[in-house]
Simulated assay, not measured.
Amino acid sequence: MRLLLVEDEIERAQALSAALYRRDYIVEHVVNLAATAEAVRSDGHDATLLDWSPPIGEGVSLIPPARSFGREARSSC
């Protein structure tokens, strides 16, 4: 399964990526909302893990645009 990880804290992202990799996930890490929007458009991910509070904007702000690309967006808190 291919995951998109949106996380601005590099150490946290590295730890999450390593843990997910050990469980056979492929992780693409992005650090900001602009890169996230581009990655969502690429349509190569099975799921997205969003940082709830990135430094600029809100992670949940990406859910409506993802829906416009024909993907189902689900939120889990």
Rank of each mutant, 00 (worst) to 15 (best):
P64L: 09
Y21G: 06
S76P: 00
R71Q: 13
D51V: 01
P55D: 06
H29F: 04
D46M: 09
A47E: 10
D43N: 14
L5W: 04
S53G: 09
L3Y: 09
P54C: 01
T48K: 00
E28T: 15
A39V: 06
L16R: 00
N32M: 03
F69M: 03
E72P: 01
A18C: 02
E72C: 05
L49M: 04
S68F: 08
D43I: 07
S68M: 15
L16E: 05
E9M: 06
E9H: 14
S53H: 15
E38R: 11
A35R: 09
A39D: 03
G57N: 08
L20C: 08
L62N: 03
G70M: 09
R2L: 02
L62H: 02
V31M: 15
A15L: 14
E58V: 11
Y21M: 01
A35I: 00
G70T: 02
Y25V: 02
R23T: 08
P54N: 04
V60G: 07
V27I: 14
A73E: 08
R71H: 15
S17K: 13
G70I: 13
P54I: 03
A19Y: 06
S75D: 00
P65F: 09
E38K: 07
A18D: 05
N32F: 02
Q14C: 01
D46F: 09
L5H: 02
H45W: 13
R22L: 13
L33S: 03
H45T: 09
A34P: 01
D24T: 10
G44L: 11
I26R: 07
S76L: 11
E11P: 07
N32A: 12
L49V: 14
T36K: 03
G44C: 05
G59A: 05
E28D: 10
R74W: 13
R41M: 08
S76I: 15
Y21L: 11
S61G: 11
I26Y: 10
A13D: 07
S75A: 10
D43Q: 12
M1R: 12
P54R: 01
E11A: 14
P55L: 01
I56V: 15
H29K: 02
A34M: 04
D8H: 11
G59F: 04
S53K: 14
P65D: 04
V31L: 03
Q14E: 14
L3C: 12
P65M: 12
E38F: 09
H45V: 08
S75H: 08
D43S: 11
I26F: 10
V27N: 10
S53R: 12
A15Y: 05
A73F: 04
N32H: 07
